[in-house]
Design a protein around this nucleic acid. Structure first.
Lengths: 170, 170
DNA sequence: TGTTGATTGACAGTATACTGACGATCTAGG
DNA sequence: CCTAGATCGTCAGTATACTGTCAATCAACA
C-alpha cells in the first residue's frame, strides 16, 4: 500500500471555514458602509468611536477602547484623525495628568446626526439578501456567539463596568 | 410641539448592528486562529493563499486574488512574505512576460500538512460556544449571505471561472 | 504593422489591527 | 517620603485592506 499524500487539502475547505466566512462578510460589510456613507468621510471605526464618545462624554481613550472593544493602540490614531477633522476635542483631566478626556465638538455632533440614516441604510443592506426571518435568526446567533466568545478576543467588551471610574459612582 | 433632537443616539445601537458584530467576530476568529497556530508563524491570509496555491499550482497573483477573494494589492506583500519564508516560489511564465507563476516549495507543502490540524481545531473553537444545531444554522445563513453579497465586495469570489486561462481548457 | 485598449505586477498613500516596549504618572505600602 | 507596581498615552514594527496610479506587456484591430 503506497502511503497517500495526506487528506485532500483543497481550497473548498477554506470556503466553508467559519473564519474565512467571517472575514469575507466583514469586508463586504465595510464595503457597503463606505459606499453608503461616502458623502461623509467617516469610516466604520470612526463612526463607532464618535457614537461612544457621544454616549459617554468625557471618557478617556483606554475606557473608550473597552466600550467599543477596539484595540487601544489603534484607537490612538483613530482619535487623532477625528480630532484633525474637528469632530472631537481632548481636554486634560484635572485630577490625573495621564488622562485626556474626549468630547464631541459641535461639528462632531452634527455629522453624527446627519450620517445616521446612511449608516442604518448600510446596516440594512448587509442583511437584505436574506429573508426577514433569516436575518433575525442570523443576528441572534451572531450576537450569542460574539458574546460567548468575548474573552477570546484581545480586547473584550466591557460595556458598563468600564465606566465605573468616570465619576458616576460605583 | 418642540422639535426633538433626533432619535436616541447611543452605543447600544452599535452593539446590535450587523457590521459591528461582523467586525468583532472576525477579530475573535483571527485571535483564535493565531493562538492555535502560534507554533507555525502563518497568518490566516497566508494560510488561505498557501492552500489556494496548493490547489492550483502555477496560478498567478491576479487569479489567486479572485480565487480567495482577497485584495490584489494586499496580496503582493502576502506573496512576498511567503516567498521570504521559502514556502512558495515564483517562476516567470514562458508565454507572458507580465505573469509570475506561483508554486509551493517542499517547505510550503510540509508546513501545510503540519498546520492543518491546528487550523481545524481553531475553526471548531470559533463555533464551540454554540449548540451543534445552532452552529449549522449560523454557518448555513452566513454562507448564503456571503454568497448573495458576493458582488458587493470589492473583490468578488471567482472560484472556478478564474482558472479558465490556466491551460486546463475552457 | 502600428496604434489602442486591456491586463499584470508594482507602488504610494491611507486606515485598521495587534505586539511589545517606553516614559510619565498615579497608587499603595512601608 | 520613597519605592514597587499598576495605569495611561504613545510609539515602533508587522500585517491586512483598499484606492489610485504607473510602466511593461499583451491582444485586437484597422
Amino acid at each position: 500500500m503506497p502511503s497517500k499524500p495526506a487528506a485532500p487539502i483543497t481550497i473548498d475547505a477554506v470556503y466553508a471555514a467559519p473564519g474565512y466566512l467571517f472575514r469575507r462578510m466583514q469586508q463586504i460589510a465595510v464595503s457597503i458602509f463606505m459606499e453608503e456613507c461616502k458623502a461623509f468621510d467617516l469610516t466604520p471605526v470612526q463612526y463607532a468611536a464618535l457614537i461612544a464618545i457621544h454616549t459617554h462624554p468625557g471618557i478617556d481613550a483606554t475606557r473608550l477602547s473597552a466600550v467599543i472593544a477596539f484595540d487601544r493602540s489603534t484607537l490612538g490614531s483613530v482619535i487623532e484623525r477625528l480630532q484633525a477633522k474637528d469632530y472631537i476635542e481632548r481636554k486634560p483631566a484635572p485630577e490625573d495628568k495621564r488622562i485626556k478626556l474626549l468630547y464631541l465638538t459641535k461639528s462632531g455632533a452634527a455629522i453624527l446626526r446627519e450620517i445616521i440614516p446612511a449608516v442604518e441604510h448600510a446596516q440594512a443592506r448587509m442583511l437584505e439578501p436574506l429573508k426577514p426571518a433569516d436575518r433575525k435568526a442570523l443576528m441572534g446567533l451572531l450576537t450569542q456567539l460574539v458574546d460567548l466568545n468575548n474573552e477570546a478576543s484581545r480586547v473584550p467588551l466591557r460595556a458598563e463596568d468600564a465606566l465605573e471610574h468616570l465619576g458616576k459612582g460605583g
